[in-house]
Amino acid sequence: MVVRVQEAPFDLGAELDAFASGRTDVGAQVSFTGLVRDDGGLRFMEIEHYPGMTEKAIGAIEAEAVRRWTLRDALVIHRHGRLAPGEQIMMVATAAGHRGEAFAAAEFLMDYLKSRAPFWKREVTAEGAAWVAAKDEDEDALSRW
């Protein structure tokens, strides 16, 4: 189980190659990558976080996913700082015996990271800067778990 919070980019291919490598009890590995989406006029995104709490919160979410779906391994990498459109913001990877557990755990991780890990996104366009508002459906998504 690994949690990394960093400003630097990550190498998705290298991370997935290394993830759960050497194990023979993994039948399914799922990954998700979040990217900076430009809906028009985005110059860059800035992500602020709460050092200390961020790592603890993600660690707790990850531990819960491992427990619920008996994951063999889990990885969360989340970036902060300034990111350009198209850049990778974050990734999760899950390794399980079967694909059902791996998919469900990855979705659970994403739902919880969205509204329970202390990150705040701010979008900067030619018109100025605005904090991204949390969506009600992101909060609602937690109730399915």
Binding site: M90, P118, A134
Partner: peptide, 10 residues
């Protein structure tokens, strides 16, 4: 104690 708006990670 920390105060902040609803989180927008992921």
């Amino acid at each position: 104690v920390a105060f902040f708006p609803p989180m927008t990670g992921g």
